[in-house]
């Protein structure tokens, strides 16, 4: 009980710190919305025959939700936990009675809440500006995909801190991991424009699987509950691998 209230205490401060950091707010909250507006403006009136004639704007809603969740979880944690480590904040936290997992839990909780907010914002913008349908009947699949994906990408974010040597390198390494995967996985470019070989390569990485799970949950052509258990399984396995790497190699003290 004490630990739960401590985790909430940490979460509250993680929220404050997040919303007061202009870089966090821009890259996590505003940039995904900007991407949506830009892509929708460029490709807005097209339809994708390969996906049952779905509108490109409708395609981009789950794509940008995927990007926004990955930004709020993996990118956000890889950057901000690395900076906290290099600034000595993690080391200082270890010198207090606070259990280490609570320290991480507050930040992971913050990332998951931001993810949920972004999902709602992007979905609402899609509805209001582009008449992209809100998938009310597949809400459980959307929620499960969000929770599994956000948790997995949080673990991957913590794992990435292991390979980031300094705060200067944090942004470069994180972008080098995410940007190519966004392109290859059909987040930035509709997947009918991407060669089959590239897509099957991207299938080895969790961004593509996470997007496919969201796409099925959002697509108006989906029949049934919209759960992509296979894709979610792949995402979860990646998350577990990240969890184990972080558990084994995570550092609390500055590296540089």
């Amino acid at each position: 009980m004490k630990s739960v209230s401590l985790a909430l205490h940490e979460f509250r401060f993680a929220q404050k710190v997040f919303w007061r950091n202009p870089a966090s707010v821009f890259f996590t909250a505003l940039l995904p919305v900007l991407f949506l507006l830009i892509f929708a403006t460029i490709f807005g009136n097209d339809t994708i025959d390969e996906l049952g004639g779905v509108k490109v704007t409708t395609y981009y809603i789950p794509a940008i939700v995927t990007l926004a969740v990955i930004s709020a979880t993996m990118v956000n944690l890889a950057m901000n936990v690395t900076i906290a480590r290099e600034e000595g904040l993690l080391k200082r936290g270890r010198g207090t009675p606070l259990p280490p997992w609570v320290f991480i839990a507050g930040r992971v909780g913050n990332a998951i809440v931001i993810s949920a907010i972004m999902l709602v914002v992007v979905t609402l913008i899609g509805k209001l500006l582009y008449d992209a349908p809100i998938p009310w009947e597949r809400l459980p699949a959307v929620a499960v995909t969000l929770v599994v994906g956000a948790a997995a990408f949080c673990c991957l974010g913590l794992a990435i801190t292991v390979i980031i040597p300094s705060r200067e390198a944090a942004s470069a390494i994180t972008n080098a991991i995410t940007l190519p995967l966004y392109f290859l996985s059909g987040i930035f470019i509709p997947e009918n424009e991407i060669p089959e070989g590239v897509l099957s390569f991207a299938n080895h990485f969790p961004v593509r699987d996470f997007f496919q799970a969201f796409f099925t949950a959002y697509s108006p052509n989906t029949t049934g509950a919209g759960f992509e258990w296979g894709e979610l399984g792949v995402v979860a396995i990646w998350g577990l691998a990240g969890f184990l790497i972080a558990l084994r190699y995570f550092r609390w003290t500055p590296r540089s």
């Binding site: 940490e10 401060f13 007061r20 080391k91 207090t96 009675p97």
Partner: peptide, 30 residues
């Protein structure tokens, strides 16, 4: 850990929190 206080060689503060908030955050750990 309840009984020791540590000031590290390098100043370690969360730049976005106020003086009062920083102290409230750490006070919650004890």
């Amino acid at each position: 850990r309840e009984r020791i206080g540590i000031v590290l060689q390098e100043t370690t503060l969360e730049p976005a929190l106020t003086v009062r908030e920083s102290l409230q955050q750490y006070a919650g750990y004890y």
